[in-house]
Design a protein around this nucleic acid. Structure first.
Length: 384
RNA sequence: CCCGGCGUAGCUCAACCUGGUAGAGCGGUGGACUGUAGAUCCACUGGUUGCUGGUUCAAAUCCGGCCGCCGGGACCA
């Protein structure tokens, strides 16, 4: 079976707007996105990524699907490998070379996941360090918002912004905003956990005279970036209580519950064997008939039906026999009614996730160079 | 450079004062119960006590040195 990007939904061809809308859990604003697509045939979207750890479901499988959707919608994708941010964040003990190895490894993951890397522009953030224009923008942004505001948007890095943190973190939001203008991104396509920084960027470039000074006049809509924030995939254990990332308790729970590379028991990795995937999915939180906060249903919606138009659930005759769902809505309805039992769904989901992961896993097992890269990064993880 | 606080299980901490080779919660693993998971019970799993020297029959504990983190001060302005 071949999995393609979701260009069709219920058999109806989706237009560019709908494809992008389907990526975003939150879009600021839909109206501006519509305008942007009317004004530009190939707007630029960017996603920033701090290289660290080993690729898991959200980064190794979900992101490639979103990238493919963006490409399908005619969007020019710039992938910012935020090596310097990882450095600030002390990933791999703050060893920039190790961080860059991780970056190279992730590129390999995305290739293996079927992203046409020729259509994606990879940018290494550290290269900005040599450009005075970049720093000018950073300072300009810093001049235009308060320290309080910086701290408030710092929760993005997944840490509480208390005053005992290194001063380096203060640069983080201003730099991240500057990135948007510096690479002239029309769309910020990042996760919900990054929304505050993106909102800050909108606010700042919207100030009088700023889009000119930031050299962002013809970008975004009226010189302000459009924000398309994708959902944060939940960890296998389901929702956890909010840790204070956002005032909105729903968003707070979503960010707090995200599948984390540093919690292997709650995450599926692209190198996991079929047996491991089956075992992990089977032990996942999955309350019967409940959709809210149910990771398995979420994976169905965000991954399975984004990469395919159907899901076959095999089950013994005494439980109703085999059944195939042709849309997420259909599957959700059956699950809520109780017609679809969690156990049966889990088996089908594990099977499908394995099919999606298989080519990635295989690539790293068969390609010597890729394998070396993976082993190198994995060894950094252990000695970290 | 000086003063103070801290450093114990994967995490948060207790035991230090009044030496007797470490406990709890959370987590993890396994069972019971559910046609999944969770919840709930039951069991299991957990540590070179930052490093080092000393005192002592005996050091997480007392003393010295070092390292690291945090805070304050001094110097400089």
């Amino acid at each position: 079976m071949e999995y393609c990007s979701q260009q069709y939904f219920l058999g109806v061809e989706m237009d560019r707007f709908e494809i992008i809308k389907n990526i975003g859990q939150e879009i600021i604003t839909e109206e501006e996105l519509r305008r942007l697509l009317e004004e530009k045939k190939h707007p630029v979207a960017y996603d920033g990524f701090e290289p660290s750890g080993i690729a898991h479901l959200p980064v190794g499988v979900y992101r490639p699907l979103l990238l493919k959707d963006l490409i399908t919608a005619g969007v020019k994708v710039k992938l910012l490998l935020a090596d310097s941010f990882a450095w600030i964040n002390n990933k791999f003990g703050g060893d920039l070379e190790k961080i860059r190895d991780a970056g190279r490894y992730f590129i390999e993951v995305w290739k293996a996941a079927g992203v046409d890397m020729k259509k994606v522009k990879v940018i290494w953030h550290k290269d900005f360090f040599d450009d005075p224009e970049y720093w000018k923008k950073v300072i300009l942004i810093a001049k235009n918002h308060s320290l309080t505001r910086t701290k408030r948007s710092l929760a993005i890095a997944g840490r509480e912004a208390d005053d005992s943190q290194p001063t380096a973190f203060v640069f983080y939001p201003s730099m991240q905003c500057a990135d948007i203008f510096h690479i002239k991104a029309d769309i910020c396509q990042l996760g919900m956990d990054q929304r505050k920084v993106n909102m800050l960027a909108r606010e700042i470039s919207g100030k009088k005279g700023m889009k000119e000074q930031l050299d962002y006049v013809d970008c975004g809509v009226d010189g302000r970036p459009v924000i398309v924030s994708h959902r944060m995939l939940m960890g296998l254990k389901g929702p956890v209580k909010g840790k204070g990332f956002d005032e909105n308790s729903g968003i707070d729970v979503e960010i707090s519950s995200k599948m984390s590379k540093s919690l292997p028991e709650t995450a599926i990795f692209v190198h996991d064997s079929k047996e491991e995937i089956t075992k992990k999915i089977n032990s996942a939180f999955c309350p019967m008939k409940v959709v809210e906060g149910n990771p398995i249903l979420e994976y169905c919606k965000e991954i399975i039906f984004r990469s395919s138009h159907e899901l076959e659930v095999k089950r013994p005759p005494k439980f109703g026999g085999d059944v195939t769902f042709y849309s997420y809505a259909e599957l959700e309805k059956a699950f809520v009614s109780g017609d679809l039992h969690p156990q049966d769904l889990k088996i089908a989901v594990a099977e499908r996730l394995n099919e999606l992961i298989e080519p990635i896993r295989d690539h790293f097992e068969k390609n010597t160079k890729a394998q070396e890269l993976y082993e190198t990064v994995a060894s950094y993880e252990i000695t970290r």
